[in-house]
């Protein structure tokens, strides 16, 4: 546990909060489900087009407190528009990266970040703010990988967000934007937690262990 803590870059006074959180059940904690829309899957070449996030507070998703920030600073959406449907003109009135990151920093205070395939999105964020490179986050894709491996189920081609959701009887969402996917990730996380914990507690240390 301590070796992970070493990897953490926490603000002053946050270490105590985190150590305390590691032993708490997920229903006593706050998470921030996060998703990005990107112009490419390569952090070296691509840019962030939008950031969406939804908090989970003590076991309940609060979509009303979610945000969707379009970013105006990027080198063109290119072919990626086919995937996310965001056109260059859509981001014209968007936020600066600095502004968007400041808002995200604000939103994630006291919350554990939650992503589906955390590595990719965190690498993009780390380009702008290096602490994201070291941040520990809960990862629904890794959790699903661990669960399926443990159950002896095949994992190849079965870990995309919608494939995972389908296994928990979660509804299919038509729209694809960072906010919808953040909501979708949050719902998947609660479903996984529900299946893993039953009546028992499941603490943050366990969640982060599975997210590695």
């Amino acid at each position: 546990m301590l070796q992970w803590l070493n990897k953490l870059s926490l603000g002053r006074g946050q270490e105590d909060w985190f150590v305390d959180a590691l032993n708490k059940d997920f229903r006593q904690l706050e998470f921030l489900a996060l998703d990005l829309e990107l112009t490419s899957l390569d952090p070296q070449q691509g840019d962030i087009l939008s950031i969406g996030y939804v908090p989970i507070i003590e076991g309940f998703i609060c979509p009303g407190e979610g945000r969707h920030c379009l970013i105006s600073e990027h080198s063109g959406v290119g072919d990626s528009a086919i995937i996310h449907g965001i056109r260059d003109c859509d981001t014209d009135g968007g936020h600066t990266m600095e502004d968007a990151l400041a808002q995200l920093d604000q939103a994630r205070q006291g919350k554990v970040l939650l992503l589906h395939h955390a590595g990719l999105d965190l690498a993009f964020l780390a380009k702008h703010q290096s602490e994201y490179g070291k941040l520990l986050a809960a990862d629904t894709m890794q959790i699903e990988f661990q669960r399926r491996t443990r159950q002896g189920q095949p994992v190849a081609n079965s870990l995309r967000l919608n494939q995972c959701r389908d296994r928990y009887n979660l509804p299919a969402y038509k729209a694809h934007n960072a906010l919808t996917d953040a909501l979708a990730t949050a719902e998947l996380f609660l479903a996984q937690m529900s299946y893993m914990s039953g009546q028992d507690e499941i603490n943050l240390a366990e969640i982060l262990r599975l997210s590695r």
Binding site: F60, P63, G64, M193, S194, G198
Partner: peptide, 11 residues
Amino acid sequence: AANSVKIAYHR
């Protein structure tokens, strides 16, 4: 209404 919604998952 939409903003006030809170979501939980039940098994």
